[in-house]
């Protein structure tokens, strides 16, 4: 299954992904309720993004008090109409990928925009891509090998 893949060394913390996400999903710019969150940690450490990883063994699914979270193929989906906003899933999620949406009064996650994620398209540095993890792995290995040829590039 294709995933939103991130190359953190390319992320510049611009937040365009977070902006376009809520704009697309909610019709307005609402960063705290965006399903793609940009985290700024300050200091030398990179900024990074969090979003639903559609885990193989999701913590949220186990935590949900109303059992409205399930796996559909490889996607983690939720029946948000049944959500009563207890926040158990948000607490359980190790990535912090579950966000509260005031519009529907429920906890929501990234659904990959049905297969054509906007955040990937808008990311100005190419830090985000939409690919199978295996493909992302191949690209990372190749790009590491390329960097390695030019000693200036190696950190």
């Amino acid at each position: 299954m294709k995933m939103i893949c991130v190359d953190r060394s390319k992320c510049n913390g611009c937040g365009a992904c977070q902006t376009i996400c809520s704009l697309t999903k909610k019709g307005s710019i609402h960063p705290t309720e965006s399903r793609m969150q940009l985290r700024r940690t300050g200091g030398v450490q990179l900024q990074y993004t969090t979003y639903c990883q559609h885990c193989a063994d999701p913590a949220c699914l186990k935590a949900c008090l109303k059992t409205i979270i399930r796996k559909e193929g490889e996607l983690v989906v939720r029946n948000f109409e049944g959500c009563f906003a207890c926040s158990a899933c948000a607490v359980a999620c190790p990535m912090g990928a579950v966000v509260y949406d005031s519009g529907v009064d429920a906890y929501l996650t990234c659904d990959q925009c049905g297969g054509d994620p906007l955040c990937v398209k808008i990311c100005p540095t190419g830090a985000l891509s939409f690919a199978e993890p295996a493909q992302s792995s191949v690209e990372r290995r190749s790009s590491y090998a390329e960097k390695r040829q030019d000693p200036k590039e190696v950190l």
């Binding site: 995933m3 991130v6 190359d7 990883q53 999701p58 792995s137 290995r141 590491y144």
Partner: peptide, 15 residues
């Protein structure tokens, strides 16, 4: 393992 892919995003070699 819960299959969250964090390891892939953090590995500089894509292993």
């Amino acid at each position: 393992c819960i299959g969250c892919h964090e390891c892939l995003w953090s590995c500089p070699f894509g292993v």
